[in-house]
Design a protein around this nucleic acid. Structure first.
Ligand SMILES: [Zn+2]
Ligand SMILES: [Zn+2]
Ligand SMILES: [Zn+2]
Ligand SMILES: [Zn+2]
Lengths: 135, 135
DNA sequence: AACACTATGTAATAATATAACATTTGAAAG
DNA sequence: CTTTCAAATGTTATATTATTACATAGTGTT
């Protein structure tokens, strides 16, 4: 029971790619992953992109669209990758996943006059992080 | 007074690129723009990307990040490109800019516990448009 | 004219992502 | 156990998106 069955269902390549992203303190780019996994036998872009695609579907990582980079999911609220929100510092580029019920409730129930009901959203906030605000 | 001074300050290339985007009923990709302006003397990617960059700064167009494509601003609320929201149909890929005060007020005043204050956001909703929902 | 600033033209290349096809693996069913 | 089927992998090539770097030209100001 120690590990609470975490990522037992990941395949070899998926696990390798996930480990890299999870260990990183910042968003990771696909080709940076590729470079870092060459030593583990992954040699070509499709291997990385397929793993990324699967991990996104599983909700284990998210793509930060404005940066073409990937982060591990920290909130465990978005297991199916349906509702994601990030804060992005415009100076140091730090990206943090936002877990805020008021925000997610508001957005999940948002419905506009077009009659379109949304099943998924991605929100990216930009500003200055605490550290960078001081300087 | 007929035209209410609209885009008088756009340079030649900026105007050419903007016209293409504004006339399109769907998001336009950079290389599609490039292809379409070859006849007007614009020959290389940087010319297009520079115009795009400027138009974005001016708030006349927005980039739809999840599609790497560009749309003309329809809301005139986001003159400085600070607060953008789009609805995107997952089937026909139609993109519509959302102008909704409740939404923009909520997001503009959103502040999370990290102490980070946001000056900009981009939100992309995904779902099925009215037309595609029927089928 | 001299200056600063913005925009343009052009060639080369970098960075991101997918197509296509052959092969392997692993779990489920018979 | 072996047949079967879906998922995952390996590999080559190519498509798509975006930027660097440098030279030139226009525009307005002093
Ligand atoms: Zn998440
Ligand atoms: Zn910062
Ligand atoms: Zn707009
Ligand atoms: Zn649709």
């Amino acid at each position: 029971m120690a590990k609470m069955q975490k990522e037992y269902n990941l395949s070899k390549n998926q696990q390798i790619v996930f480990d890299i992203i999870e260990k990183s303190s910042e968003p990771v780019k696909a080709y940076s992953i590729l470079y870092n996994v060459k030593k583990k036998g992954i040699k070509a872009p499709p291997q990385v992109y397929r793993a990324l695609e699967k991990l996104i579907k599983l909700g284990k990582i998210h793509k930060v669209e404005s940066k073409n980079a990937f982060v591990a999911c920290k909130s465990s609220n978005c297991e199916i990758s349906k509702a994601t929100a990030f804060s992005i510092c415009e100076i140091c580029e730090k990206v943090t996943e936002i877990a805020n019920n008021k925000l997610s409730n508001f957005l999940n129930s948002f419905e506009d006059k077009s009659g379109m009901k949304y099943k998924k959203y991605n929100l990216e906030f930009f500003g200055l992080c605490k550290k960078c605000k001081k300087t």
